[in-house]
């Protein structure tokens, strides 16, 4: 389902080139839960961004469900991200001027599929994340944990085949972290959505069917 080959990413900075990911081969089978662990600065976020179609690799390929995503045109890639991928960021990532329910509905609205009851589904997903009474709330009125859960609901609105979460709980308290992880794992188990999760919580990583350890931009044995 997910297959990365010789994936490399280097950033050009004033101090010269920084190699963040130095040639990674990675395969994740459909429906699996894979955990990516590694120290801060080891290149996990850079890898996730390339897999999620958010950051163009310096080299190598990412194939998801048979599609070489970085071979797509800009608009096709946008559509692919929209329909097939869900991304949960490490930090607050809701649009502050939209209500939670608008934020969750937005990817479906962007995809212009006029058929479904988008707002009904957005409300359902928010309800599932325990935010049923926060539909009309603005992000600024919600706690960090609530915002993160709304971001997960947003990632799920278009029924992605691959859900990518980059340390989604690193800035939250332990109890909230457990709740949110439960939601993600439930999505993986109940909907069969492939889940790739970056975490520094080893206990969480140990529940994964596949653990990828990254160090210095490459996969450590």
């Amino acid at each position: 389902m997910l297959s990365c080959r010789a994936l490399r990413k280097s950033y050009v900075t004033e101090r010269g080139e920084v190699l963040a990911v130095g040639g990674i081969d990675l395969d994740v089978e459909a429906g699996r839960y894979a955990a990516i662990i590694g120290r801060s600065g080891s290149g996990k976020s850079s890898l996730m961004a390339m897999v999620g179609g958010l950051s163009r690799p310096s080299d190598g390929s990412v194939v998801i469900d048979g599609t070489d995503i970085w071979g797509l045109s800009d608009d096709k890639l946008a559509a692919f991200r929209n329909r097939r991928l869900g991304f949960v960021f490490q930090f607050a990532s809701l649009l502050p001027t939209l209500r939670l329910v608008d934020n969750v509905a937005l990817p479906a609205l962007l995809g212009k599929r006029g058929d479904a009851d988008i707002y009904g589904k957005a409300a359902m997903l928010l309800g599932r994340m325990g935010l049923g009474d926060h539909l009309d709330a603005y992000p600024g009125e919600c706690s960090a944990g609530e915002q993160r859960r709304a971001a997960i609901a947003r990632a799920l609105i278009n029924d992605p085949v691959l859900l990518l979460a980059d340390e989604p709980t690193s800035d939250l308290d332990e109890q909230t972290e457990i709740e949110i992880m439960d939601e993600l794992l439930a999505v993986n188990r109940e909907l069969g959505t492939t889940l790739v999760l970056v975490t520094h919580n080893l206990a969480l990583a140990e529940q994964a069917e596949q653990i990828v350890h990254i160090a210095g931009g490459t996969i450590a044995p």
Partner: peptide, 15 residues
Amino acid sequence: SELGLLKAIGARRGQ
């Protein structure tokens, strides 16, 4: 960051 976010959730460049 908001524009990036819009792109991330699948907004096309034109949008």
